[in-house]
């Protein structure tokens, strides 16, 4: 059987909110090392990769590897019934066709069980090679969210460029153009407000803002976001999940005709 007890249940609620509009159905792959998920959006342009390590759970048991096929909209409906401070436990039998979500209120005076039907999903796993990215930028996640939202009101695509000075986001549309530069900034009081640039080579790539906007639904998971870019490769937008792992989004670049 599989059982995972998560003291900070709100993390799971936030993960679902971040991915449920991008991916419809996906397998949650449970093993003794944790829960992993990999899924593409329906147009095969973006990919979600989630890792929740067993060590981040208060209690974790997985007797044999299980692929739990889940409709994310339905799981989101169930998790919305959990309080933000609730402890969430996931349970599934080896041969079962359901998953149980148990919600415990912080002072243990309310215990709720929700059972959800599982589905059979043919997963399409992609092999993502280890890559030394040409540029890696870490910046405040709220700042990235704001930039992507602001640019979305002006254009459909953004050119993301990284030089040793910083990262730039540019767009253009019927009403005009916009260009935002965030400079490397490590002289701030709080580490989470820093913008850092690691660069081997300047890089500039074009991406659909609609997808970048969707990724920023994960902002609540982490105060910082890491953008990894290489010429002619998908961008990686990574939100680290404290003590547990990460939520990563990959987005294929656009190419000039």
């Amino acid at each position: 059987m599989f059982e995972g007890r998560l003291l900070q249940g709100s993390l799971l609620k936030k993960v679902l909110e971040a991915i449920k509009d991008l991916v419809t159905d996906t397998n949650f792959d449970c093993s003794e090392t944790g829960i992993a998920l990999q899924a593409m959006d329906s147009s095969h342009v973006a990919l979600v990769s989630l890792l929740l390590k067993d060590t981040g759970f208060d209690h974790f048991r997985c007797d044999r590897n299980l692929a739990l096929g889940i409709n994310l909209q339905n799981m989101s409906k169930m998790l919305k019934c959990a309080g933000n401070d609730d402890i969430i436990t996931l349970k599934a039998e080896d041969e079962g066709d359901t998953i149980t979500f148990m919600f415990e209120s912080p002072n243990q005076d309310k215990i709720s069980d929700f059972e959800m039907k599982l589905m059979d999903i043919d997963s399409e796993h992609l092999g993502i090679p280890d890559t030394d990215y040409q540029a890696i930028v870490t910046m405040p996640s709220a700042e990235f969210q704001r930039i992507v939202r602001d640019l979305s009101s002006i254009g459909d695509t953004a050119v993301i460029g990284v030089t040793k000075e910083g990262i730039s986001f540019s767009t253009g549309g019927d009403i005009g153009k916009a260009n935002i530069v965030c400079r490397q900034n490590t002289n701030v009081d709080k580490e989470e407000d820093q913008t850092t640039v690691e660069i081997h080579e300047p890089v500039s790539l074009t991406f659909a803002l609609r997808y970048l906007n969707s990724f920023t639904k994960a902002t609540a998971l982490s105060p910082q976001v890491t953008l990894s870019l290489s010429k002619e490769l998908p961008i990686v937008v990574e939100y680290k999940i404290e003590k547990m792992g990460f939520l990563r989004f990959y987005l294929a670049p656009k190419i000039e005709e």
């Binding site: 147009s43 092999g127 993502i128």
Partner: peptide, 14 residues
């Protein structure tokens, strides 16, 4: 308008 690449052009299906 630039063309949208597909992820399968970068990553192998496994």
């Amino acid at each position: 308008t630039p063309l949208q690449n597909n992820l399968s052009e970068f990553f192998a299906m496994i």
